[in-house]
Structure formats: C-alpha cells, structure tokens
C-alpha cells in the first residue's frame, strides 16, 4: 500500500522533524496538569509523529522499529496503568482515583503525591491513545492485511 518512495527532501525533513514532534508531545503530556494539554492531546501528537514516519518511509521500515505486537501491548499497558493507579487508591481505603491517599505508601507531601498520581494517569492515557491512533491508521491503509506482510 504505502511503498518506499525515495525522496531525499521528504526523508531528511522528516528525520529532523519527528524527534522534535515527539519531544513536544512528551512536554504536552508532562505539563498536562499545569497548562493546556494532557494525555489525550499529547498521545495524539505522539501518534501523529509515528504516522508521519509511516508516510515518509514505508510500513515495513516502520514495523522494524515499532512492531505490531509492541503496539497491541502498549494499548493494554496504558489501560492497565490507569486501572492499577485507580485500584491502589481503592485498596488504601479511598475512592477510585482519589490519588491523595497514596501518601500512605509514598513518603511525600499529600499535595505532591496527588500531582504525581495525575501524571501517572496522563502517561497511561497518552500511551493508549498513541498506540490506538497508529493501529487505526495501519488497519485503515492496509485493509488489516499488514500482519501477513501483504502490503
């Protein structure tokens, strides 16, 4: 479907742009609770950087770096991170996602622990959104046949 098209300008510009896009996406995820942004927006930008890599090169080139198995595992891992942080709060005797209670096991200020819990949730959402966006684009452009290498 998307085959390798050797174009020096496109490949050089993408090689310079992709790390900057990923750095900006990590900034958006990490500053989600201080400024506009958050897990969903940062995950979308991070997924867009992988989609740009997929368009500028080809699918097999990208799958050597970011394979389909790792992609599916990352979808599940983000949801697992969200659920585990929520359930830790329940096990310590507070409501689901009431992060302030985690200061019982992490010896820090409760306000700081609450901010760290929000950061963990944002990272989980970001990982899941990034992997789902890449997975949707791969299945959309290849009729879902990319697993057998029939692209």
């Amino acid at each position: 479907m998307i085959r390798l098209y050797d174009d020096l300008i496109i490949q050089t510009v993408c090689r310079i742009m992709i790390p900057l896009i990923q750095l900006f996406a990590l900034y958006v995820i990490a500053h989600g609770h201080y400024s506009p942004g958050g897990g969903f927006q940062g995950g979308c930008i991070l997924g867009a950087s992988f989609i740009l890599m997929l368009i500028a090169y080809d699918i097999n080139w990208m799958k050597r770096r970011f394979s389909e198995d790792i992609n599916i595992l990352m979808i599940a891992f983000g949801v697992l991170l969200y659920a585990v942080i929520g359930l830790i709060c329940v096990l310590l005797g507070a409501e689901y996602l009431n992060y302030g209670i985690i200061h019982k096991i992490i010896p820090l200020d409760p306000v700081r622990v609450r901010a760290l819990g929000t950061l963990g949730i944002e990272i989980g959402v970001g990982i899941t959104v990034m992997a789902v966006m890449v997975s949707i684009f791969l299945n959309l452009t290849t009729f879902g046949k990319h697993e057998k290498g029939e692209v």
Partner: peptide
Amino acid sequence: AFTEAAVGAGISTAF
C-alpha cells in the same frame, strides 16, 4: 482549541 488542533486538523486529516 488544543484538542481541535491535535485531533481535528492533525490526525483526522491523515485518517
């Protein structure tokens, strides 16, 4: 506005 720029203008156009 940030969500619209990331999702609407970025990802959905690629989709």
